[in-house]
Design a protein around this nucleic acid. Structure first.
Lengths: 187, 187
DNA sequence: ATGAGTCATTAACCTAGGTTCAGAATGTAC
DNA sequence: GTACATTCTGAACCTAGGTTAATGACTCAT
């Protein structure tokens, strides 16, 4: 998985093996139990990880205690409070392991190491990809009903869905588990 | 306004006066009538503009002919099919003048001129800002009802609102003009 | 294996917002 | 200024999805 990880980010941002290794070598592998929380509101957003195995989930909790899932993340994906990192704020989101996970974790040290021009392209690409994904989600919230959003979820996250409880899917779609049941039985 | 524009992007991305002037000097001023369309689906996403005066609107049209507003843009803001530009696709969105506008327009030539490392920081910052804005909108769609979204709109776009017809506000919130009337009368 | 939580589903009822239609209030063109 | 078109508001009715509550089906810890 290490090699795949390098290849993935190499391809996205044209990082040299050297620069990559320099950063990754100081990161350490961490295992997370199912339902273990990786990051919570108030934690430093400098903490991040790359997923080797398993599925993670980024979510908010509102004042009534309801959870709203922003995104899921699988092998190769970035786990972290990305928006807060960009704004130099502490995390406002929770990140938890949906299934048992294995990740390589980094922090401020590694982020600083990536503050060279060689990494600019990668970070720009990551920002752009994040933007495109969120704009697409905006589009779906504006135009799609819950069923159409569910179908889009299934398409986008098909490789992770078998590990994701339906209540999390519902919270990602912005509906209740009951509503998700209604939708998926009928259609 | 020219100076303000430079100062704004100077501050965002640390562009030198020289680099800025080199790009802007080949752009030309364009006036748009109210309701005039600046860009439509199928047009090259290389066409973009910086707003000198007036208010623009980015929107989709769905298969039933309904319009869904992605964002508004005022003086100093970027007018363009940004997501499509990033993906090297033709525009999928409409952009129109909500009020009479004055802009400085650019195209592929200027985009190419900005393909130097000096511009990387600015483009990265733009991508990040776009991402943050969209993630915030995702958050509001997940957690807020129409009234709360309206209040958020009023806060964010208060400086432009006097120029924006309410039907466009409704289409930005993802509701009908009738629903917007209901909301704003009662509250 | 057993009991205590979770989780998914179903059903009955409720509500925010959609739809349709109509009238009032604006704009805009001549 | 008059005429026409567009926008805004309002009311009546409808529907997608929320809320509450009940019932199995699963975990999983002991």
């Amino acid at each position: 998985m290490y090699d795949e990880l390098f290849q993935k980010y190499q391809q996205i941002g044209g990082i040299s093996n050297q620069a990559w290794t320099k950063v990754v070598s100081t990161m350490h592998v961490k295992s997370l139990d199912k339902a273990e929380i990786f990051l919570r509101p108030g934690d430093s957003s400098h903490t991040f990880a790359l997923i080797l195995d398993g599925v993670g989930r980024h979510y908010y909790v509102d004042d009534q205690g309801k959870e709203w899932t922003k995104s899921f993340a699988g092998p190769g994906d970035l786990l972290g409070a990305y928006a807060e990192m960009l704004q130099a704020q502490d995390s406002r989101t929770f990140i938890e392991a949906v299934s048992p996970m294995k990740v390589i974790q980094g922090g401020k040290r590694e982020l600083d190491l990536m503050h060279t021009s060689e990494w600019d392209g990668l970070w720009r690409k990551l920002a752009e990809d994040h933007f495109i994904k969120k704009e697409n989600r905006e589009y779906e919230f504006l135009k799609f009903d819950a069923l159409a959003r569910y179908q889009s979820y299934m398409k986008y996250y098909q490789h992770l869905d078998h590990l994701v409880p339906r209540k999390f899917v519902a919270s990602y779609l912005g509906i209740t588990p009951q509503a998700l049941s209604r939708i998926t039985i009928k259609n």
